[in-house]
C-alpha cells in the first residue's frame, strides 16, 4: 500500500473533526473523498499533509510510519499536496512558483494548459481564481512525488480545463503515482476514482470500490 491511515483522529484545537478514520490507497490508484462543505475534507487533507497534528491513529506511507514527521519531511518523501485555498505563492511569478518544485520543464502540462506556459513572468496574485487553481494543479503535477493530495482542484475551473486535469491525473497514475482526490465534482470523480469515500457531518457515510461506485449514492452523499 502506498498510503494507509489507521484509525486517525484529528481536528482543530479541542474539536475533533475525524474520529478513527481508516483508508488505504495503492500505487497508481485514485481514491476520491467526497462530501459537502464542512464535512472535513480539507481537515483530512491537512492531517495527511502534516499541517495539522494527529490526535490519534497512525499514517503509513510507502511502508514507513510517518505519523510523527513534519509536513516538510512528508513532502520530501513524496507527498505532494495542493491545498484548497492559497494553492500558489501569490507574491511570486508563475516561473518562480514552478521553479520551487524543482521541475525543469512543463512537458505535457504546458500543452494542456498553454495559458500557464505563456504567463511565466506574471505574478500569481494578478491571475483569476480559476487560473490560480490551474497553476496550483500544474505545480502539484510537476512536483516529484508518489502521492498527490488534491483538495478540490476543479473548484472554479472551466469544464474544458477540468477534462485536462482528469487526463493529467490519469497519466500520472499510469506512471505509478497514487492520488487522493477531495472533490465535489461528480463527473471528475466518476472519470477517475478507483474507490470512493463519502463524508458527512458524522464521519464516513459511504464507501465503494470499482463497479460498486454509483452516481446515485454519491449524489445522495453530496445532497441533504
Amino acid at each position: 500500500m502506498m498510503l494507509r491511515l489507521d484509525g486517525i483522529s484529528g481536528g482543530y484545537h479541542d474539536t475533533l473533526v475525524h474520529r478513527g478514520l481508516s483508508l488505504e490507497l495503492g500505487a497508481g490508484e485514485v481514491l476520491a473523498v467526497i462530501g459537502r462543505n464542512g464535512t472535513g475534507k480539507t481537515t483530512l487533507a491537512r492531517l495527511i499533509a502534516g499541517e495539522l497534528p494527529l490526535a490519534g491513529g497512525s499514517i503509513r506511507f510507502g511502508g514507513q510510519d510517518i505519523t510523527r514527521l513534519s509536513s516538510w519531511d512528508r513532502a520530501r518523501r513524496g507527498i505532494v499536496s495542493m491545498p484548497q485555498t492559497d494553492m500558489v505563492f501569490d507574491g511570486l511569478t508563475v516561473a518562480e512558483n514552478l521553479a520551487l518544485t524543482g521541475a525543469k520543464s512543463l512537458g505535457e502540462l504546458g500543452k494542456r494548459f498553454p495559458r500557464i506556459a505563456q504567463r511565466m513572468r506574471q505574478t500569481a496574485q494578478t491571475m483569476s481564481g480559476g487560473e490560480r487553481k490551474i497553476l496550483g494543479f500544474v505545480r502539484a503535477l510537476v512536483s516529484p512525488g508518489k502521492l498527490l493530495v488534491l483538495d478540490e482542484p476543479s473548484e472554479g475551473v472551466q469544464t474544458e480545463n477540468i477534462d485536462h486535469m482528469v487526463a493529467c491525473i490519469r497519466q500520472a497514475c499510469a506512471d505509478g503515482t497514487a492520488c487522493l482526490l477531495f472533490e465535489q465534482n461528480i463527473r471528475m470523480v466518476e472519470a477517475l476514482a478507483h474507490a470512493v469515500i463519502g463524508l458527512d457531518s458524522s464521519g464516513v457515510c459511504y464507501r465503494a470500490e470499482g463497479q460498486e461506485i454509483s452516481r446515485q449514492d454519491m449524489l445522495a452523499t453530496l445532497s441533504l
Partner: peptide
C-alpha cells in the same frame, strides 16, 4: 520569498 508569502505551502513544498 515563498516562505514569507505562504508558509504552509512552503512546508508542503519540502521547505
Amino acid at each position: 520569498r515563498a516562505v514569507v508569502n505562504n508558509p504552509s505551502l512552503a512546508r508542503a513544498s519540502g521547505i
